[in-house]
Design a protein around this nucleic acid. Sequence first.
RNA 1: UUGGCUAUUCGCUCUAUCGCUAUUCCGCUUUUGUGGAAGAGAGGAAAGUCGGGACAACGCAGGACGCCAUACUUCCUAACAGGAAGGUAUUUCGUGCAAACGGAAUAACAGCUAGUGCAACAGAAAGUAUUCCGCCUAAGAUUGUUUUCGAACAGUACGGUAAGGGUGAAAUCGUGGAGUAAGAGCCCACGCCUGUUUAUGCGAAUAAACUUGAGGUAAACCUUAUGGGUUGUAAGACCAAAUAUACCGGGAAUUUUUUGCUUCGGCAAGAAUAGAGGCUUGUCCGGCCAAUCCCGGAGGGUAGGUUGCUAGAGCUUCGGAGCGAUUCGUAGCCCAGAUAAAUGAUAGAGGUUCUACUUAGUAGAAAACAGAAUCCCGCUUAUAGAAUAGCCAAAAAU
RNA 2: UGACCCAUGGUGUAACUGGCAACACGUUUGAUUUUGGUUCAAAAGAGUCCAGGUUCGAGCCCUGGUGGGUCAA
Length: 124
Amino acid sequence: MNTFKKEERLNSKKTIQCLFASGKSFFNYPFKVYYLLSDANSSTSTAILFSVGKRQFKKAVDRNKLKRLCREAYRLNKSALIKKIKEKEKHMDIAVVFVGKSIPEYKEIEQKTKKYLEHLSSIV
RNA sequence: UUGGCUAUUCGCUCUAUCGCUAUUCCGCUUUUGUGGAAGAGAGGAAAGUCGGGACAACGCAGGACGCCAUACUUCCUAACAGGAAGGUAUUUCGUGCAAACGGAAUAACAGCUAGUGCAACAGAAAGUAUUCCGCCUAAGAUUGUUUUCGAACAGUACGGUAAGGGUGAAAUCGUGGAGUAAGAGCCCACGCCUGUUUAUGCGAAUAAACUUGAGGUAAACCUUAUGGGUUGUAAGACCAAAUAUACCGGGAAUUUUUUGCUUCGGCAAGAAUAGAGGCUUGUCCGGCCAAUCCCGGAGGGUAGGUUGCUAGAGCUUCGGAGCGAUUCGUAGCCCAGAUAAAUGAUAGAGGUUCUACUUAGUAGAAAACAGAAUCCCGCUUAUAGAAUAGCCAAAAAU
RNA sequence: UGACCCAUGGUGUAACUGGCAACACGUUUGAUUUUGGUUCAAAAGAGUCCAGGUUCGAGCCCUGGUGGGUCAA
């Protein structure tokens, strides 16, 4: 099922700081992706957060909309990555930062999301 | 009919699939987790944080001052810098010969007759008025001439004069008359304005009579009246986990210490508790502040959860009170509660507006401002488009 | 979420208690020099973030907005 529960989201201050400090990153315009691989220690295999900067988008409406679109795209396309990580018995923290300066269409976001998910699964 | 302004109301709807957030019910397992079902899930401004409350914590009691806010009147409200009704002033439109009346808009609309201050440049003078130009020579002063030695005539300003000129944003009430040497609210009439009294009105005020003649500026200091303690839900309360012992509060018991004498029980003298200093809402008054033991809190560390948290100055219907803001009663309803941040995506149908084709259908396009974070009441700002009412303007028809 | 501050030539700052918006650097032109720099002489460049109001007169006072920044954790 294409669910997206709270456990799959990254919401601890400590782990987020750890991720940005010691995680690796790559660009895939309009996204910048941070990730950190570790051994499996919890029930879930991935935890992700989406971020849109206040500098690019001043209005809260735009930021909310972008985050929702990104989350929707991830929810519908994440199954392949999770499967692969589960086989290897690992855990991955991911942070996706939106770097672009205009709001793209949903289809465009979906394509880019697929790309970076493929990249991540190849790393695993 | 079109356009503008003001006020009020609304600000896309429905269906399917896949999700997210909490709630209720059922099943399985049962600390909890998991599966299914049901109905619910951003706004008129959620924004700005500009007023005002609710709620909470804090101060060692209390008082004075300071500071801040408000400012025509009455009413409404939990309260307000909000609203309603009314008054006054200004602007504007209409009617009218005019006086005036009516409509609309705007107003930080208490007090310079409480005190202090300020007014560049220009100008004589910017505030107890004053003589730069001008005007006058009546009285007094002074110069000259004449002289019947009483004075007369002609000048003058160091005399009189604020009517006129010029300067300025502003020049000591305005217009007309009387008056005078020339002039002046010096006097008179009308007007404006200040105060008092009377009448009407709850009141702001209005009207009449008498009186006064006094420049502007309070979004200058200030005065008067009224109100305000300060800080804010990241306030605060609780649980779990964690635990060296600085510091603080409360209670208990005593005074303590130095030197000298001693019969070792005490006695005598001095010092400390005074002052200074510190703490206490912005200041002052005022208040509190030595050491030992016990109890409690707190610091450090760990950084999670619960609560506060959403049933309320709540919404809707009907009826009453009031010009109105608003309020009273009755019946019904439950309407977001997230926490690195839920309220979304896709597809289809319909409605609205615009454009094109063409003549009532087809095709295409568009849909603003904007996202809860303790909650309410207002204000301000942003806003595609739609509806209703009033006013204004233009055009057309009758 | 709450509290608060600032905005003036291209840049950095002034402007007392409302009265001609000033200074430095930079820019341009000329002189000096074989040329450049230094130095000297001159010139241009703003109407004070925006919109209203008070006032005879606002950079300054008042109101509303815009943009930027600071603090509390």
